[in-house]
Amino acid sequence: MLIKLEDVSYVYSAKTAYEQRALDHVDLEIPQGQFVGVIGHTGSGKSTLIQHFNGLMKPAEGRVLCDEEDIWAEGYDRHALRFKVGLVFQYPEHQLFEMDVLTDVCFGPKNQGLTEEEALRKARRSLAHCGVPEELYGKSPFELSGGQKRRAAIAGVLAMDPEVLILDEPTAGLDPKGRRDIFEQIASLQKKRNLTIILVSHSMEDVAKYADRLIVMNHGIKQYDGTPREVFRHYKELEKIGLAAPQITYVMNDLKRKGLDVDTDILTVEEARDAILEALRKAGKGTKRPGDPERGQK
């Protein structure tokens, strides 16, 4: 599905003293299959933005198009749209309500009008994709651990077989391993099902690692839109709007400024390691290998 926003604006508490422009003339196009990261400080309009993609919020101005159809045109079936554009809110485990995990995951597919068997089939498949072990299917959602609950809740949206999956900070409050697991699962899902992923996150390291494209929101305006490399080149400007680049980007820029000729378009530890070694080699430094290369592993 191709999602398009044309000149979209949204205003909270319109015409009162509290009026606040949450989106300010945003133009955007997201083709099928992209992994898009959305970053911005709290109140930058990220949450408002993603709720426009599945028609939970209606733009004050401008149009939202899904596959070239205006979703707010008369007669457009927005209820059906929500099955194609799945939205996972922050702390999605707070919306679990059924007696057992499997039935809860079936909620979406059943609302779609699927038969019991079909819904169960989709629920099982999604739970498996989200890494929820089968022995938990019959348990009450409230007995699960934090990470398991989170995955079951994501499976609840995935079970509707959406073409687009939007996740608002899916790893908030989890421990490092839980965070890694969720991201790995999302990345593998995207490949397995050719999903469009739209991921809202505060972690620059994570979006740098997984996203093909980054959208930076600031005061309701789309400030930057490009590959992570392009966006993080503006690391100084990002700081001014309350954001930051990954730590690695800073190291590379510091090195460059202080005279080591390294590539600064770098996002991961591995790339950084290779670039630094390469630059040092060129400068004729660091060639004297210490006697015991295993020392670092102590």
């Binding site: 939970l56 799945g86 809110f89 979406g108 609840g156």
Partner: peptide, 16 residues
Amino acid sequence: EETDKIMKAQMARGAD
């Protein structure tokens, strides 16, 4: 506020 949030979350799962 929480009611609002849960309502939207369930609407995103097709609740009516």
